[in-house]
């Protein structure tokens, strides 16, 4: 399974980068979201995969025994997911406002408006 997820991560990276390299701002944002998913998956993989054993201490125990999923990358990713929501919403509203002012979502055309 690891190999499959490694390939998926690569695909997410490739797709995100391809969209970031587009001229349209909307595609840029979608690209960033895809790339973000790729990064989350990467961090998740780095912790090592453990099937079906969440890092939760059983009722009668005081600490975890045996094999369990790594909680540290999980905490990192949880934070990342929530923060990315803030980032995306702000970015998309920024695009909307910018579009209202310069009437384009083409990054190159926006560059032109700088020079005026």
């Amino acid at each position: 399974m690891e190999i499959l997820l490694a390939i998926m991560t690569g695909i997410l990276y490739a797709a995100g980068i391809y969209l970031i390299l587009r001229r349209s701002l909307v595609k840029l944002i979608i690209g960033i979201v895809l790339l973000g998913n790729g990064v989350n998956l990467l961090i998740f993989l780095m912790g090592g995969l453990v099937k079906g054993r969440p890092p939760i201490i059983p009722e009668d125990a005081k600490h975890l025994e045996g094999l369990f999923a790594d909680p540290v990358p999980q905490a990192l990713i949880l934070t990342a997911i929530v923060i990315s929501f803030g980032l995306q919403s702000f970015a998309i509203v920024l695009i909307k406002r910018a579009y209202k002012v310069v009437k384009t979502d083409d990054i190159d055309a926006m560059n032109e408006t700088d020079r005026i």
Partner: peptide, 10 residues
């Protein structure tokens, strides 16, 4: 994927 690999919170 998170569900399969023990990350219900995620």
């Amino acid at each position: 994927i998170f569900v399969f690999y023990g990350a219900p919170d995620l």
